[in-house]
Nucleic acid binder design. Structure first.
Lengths: 141, 141
DNA sequence: CGCTCAGATGATCAAGATTCTCATTTCTAT
DNA sequence: ATAGAAATGAGAATCTTGATCATCTGAGCG
């Protein structure tokens, strides 16, 4: 019930927004597509439109509540902003997503950007590989 | 006239393919969208379909002749494969794209992936910032 | 040099993801 | 409760990219 986040972001506290936030907070998978959220809401018996999901997620992104990531394919995924910045590793086989943070990489990025005369504002880093987990339980949707 | 590249890739040497390759080789901008290539060809008086441009670029990518990049926005850009791997810095203001290669970052990526039990196969790294170029028409104040 | 046919092209259609439109509904402040 | 502003839902619209299919073209052969 973190309605405070919504208010703080200047967003009216509505049912669809709370429900979407709730799913982002409680879902097993930390990285969800708009469609996945939409389907989950429908299955919960909510009356919601896909357009609303996209609209709300875009607003959440602007408010800094969620991050939009383009991990692969054409569908963006959204993850709840839980404070720390991190990058991602995606398994080519099962689609599993893991997070990491590496200060050395972060520092070198800043240095490289400076070298090129850029003031770095953001970056996107995704590693693709095969997770060598034999019991890999996550199959792509 | 690098028709040898086409033959080597098992692609018939046709006018559209040569023209697209020529544009990729001679364009000022090293990173072009399919649409940009298409428009440039139309302006040169070529009779070509957008579908062909996409089809050919996809074939070039499969043949290792070009790289497809998702730098920002929804449109992929293509760049001629000139040997060395590199990553990109994009200016948020003017859209300029610069290339860099940093061995430290590359190495750390491999180490991080290994740490997570992944065999890294590929990666995507894009830095976003403001180029502080005084000639940049959109330079921030 | 012209012939043949697999492969390539171009026009159009189609698909998938995301945004827009607008009439209707829901919050928030009063 | 009520009014006004903002949000929602359904579907249309858009944008990028891939698929279809009839027509055309290039490479090898005579």
């Amino acid at each position: 019930m973190e309605t405070s986040n919504l208010k703080k972001a200047g967003l009216k506290v509505t049912l669809p927004r709370m429900k979407i936030l709730e799913i982002l907070e409680t879902s097993e998978t930390r990285h969800l597509t708009a469609e996945a959220i939409y389907r989950e809401l429908l299955e919960s018996g909510e009356e919601i439109g896909l357009a609303t999901v996209y609209r709300v997620l875009t607003q959440f992104e602007a408010a800094g509540l969620v991050c939009r990531l383009h991990l692969e394919g054409n569908q963006a995924v959204f993850e709840l902003e839980r404070g720390g910045h991190h990058d991602h590793i995606v398994c080519n086989q099962c689609g599993r997503v893991e997070e990491f943070f590496d200060e050395t990489i972060e520092r070198r990025q800043r240095e490289v950007a400076q070298h090129h005369g850029f003031s770095i504002k953001d970056h996107a880093l995704v590693l693709y590989g095969d997770c060598n987990d034999h019991a890999c339980p996550h199959r792509p949707a």
